[in-house]
């Protein structure tokens, strides 16, 4: 279950323009998770490549170090799609991240938790939470972090398009959880020779412009009543001649 605090953070995130308000979101998010800083890094072709935003110097230093060394919990989370929890960086085994383990004593970050952002095989980025004191996250904090990563995923996938988490009259919240949407995403990616994230965006854009829910649009694609064409319009599939 989500905590009341995280409900507040997600509400901040829902505000239309938070380009000025990133500091508020990160501060509130960090407080809700009981950590000192948060960062979001983006994934390209399976690897962490770019720091999108970051709340403080300790977190920035840790993210930069991971990217420079090419190893660490964030990179593991990006590659595997699994959350990675390091409650005490001082006790990390050398074998796990040898270069990072060498640097660990000099870091002010002591505990790091990385949450993959994505939907199935779609990997968008990693949400990293950093604390200057060691210690595990509570189950509640882990649940909250997963929900924050989820909202950020929708937000990052939607950039430049109708927002995935945006208001669409026909869509209920958490609508991206239906199996049929994932199946349709796979189908559209083949039809239009697009990577999965773009295929999902095309489905979402079509739902948005046609005023239908993404679940209904996806069902039509899976039942082959609808094919999205490369120009962005949806057409019924060509009819097969009947005997």
């Amino acid at each position: 279950m989500i905590s009341d605090r995280m409900v507040g953070v997600l509400r901040l995130l829902q505000l239309d323009d938070w380009s000025d308000g990133v500091a508020d979101v990160t501060a509130a998010g960090a407080e809700a998770l009981g950590v000192d800083g948060l960062a979001v890094s983006l994934v390209t072709e399976g690897d962490l490549t770019e720091l999108l935003w970051c709340s403080d110097a300790t977190t920035r230093h840790f993210e930069d170090l991971q990217l420079t060394l090419g190893e660490g919990p964030g990179l593991d989370a990006a590659r595997t799609g699994t959350m990675v929890s390091v409650p005490d960086l001082a006790t990390v085994r050398m074998a796990r991240w040898p270069a990072l383990a060498m640097e660990a004593p000099d870091l002010s970050a002591r505990a790091v938790f990385c949450f993959p952002m994505g939907i199935g095989a779609i990997r968008v980025g990693v949400l990293t939470a950093v604390r200057r004191t060691p210690g595990a996250l509570t189950a509640q904090q882990a649940d909250d972090a997963v929900l924050l990563a989820d909202s950020l995923t929708a937000r990052c996938l939607g950039s430049g398009e109708p927002r995935l988490d945006g208001p669409s009259p026909a869509d209920s919240p958490h609508t991206l959880q239906h199996a049929v949407i994932h199946q349709a995403t796979g189908m559209v990616s083949v039809q239009l020779a697009l990577p999965l994230p773009q295929a999902l965006l095309r489905l979402r854009a079509h739902a948005y412009s046609s005023g239908h829910s993404i679940t209904d649009i996806s069902q039509d694609v899976v039942d082959r009543r609808l094919r999205l064409d490369p120009n962005g319009n949806g057409t019924p599939p060509p009819t097969v001649d009947k005997d």
Partner: peptide, 12 residues
């Protein structure tokens, strides 16, 4: 979820 995405890819 990955399994559902893979089903869609193969079906198409």
């Amino acid at each position: 979820i990955v399994l559902e995405q893979a089903k869609g890819i193969l079906a198409e």
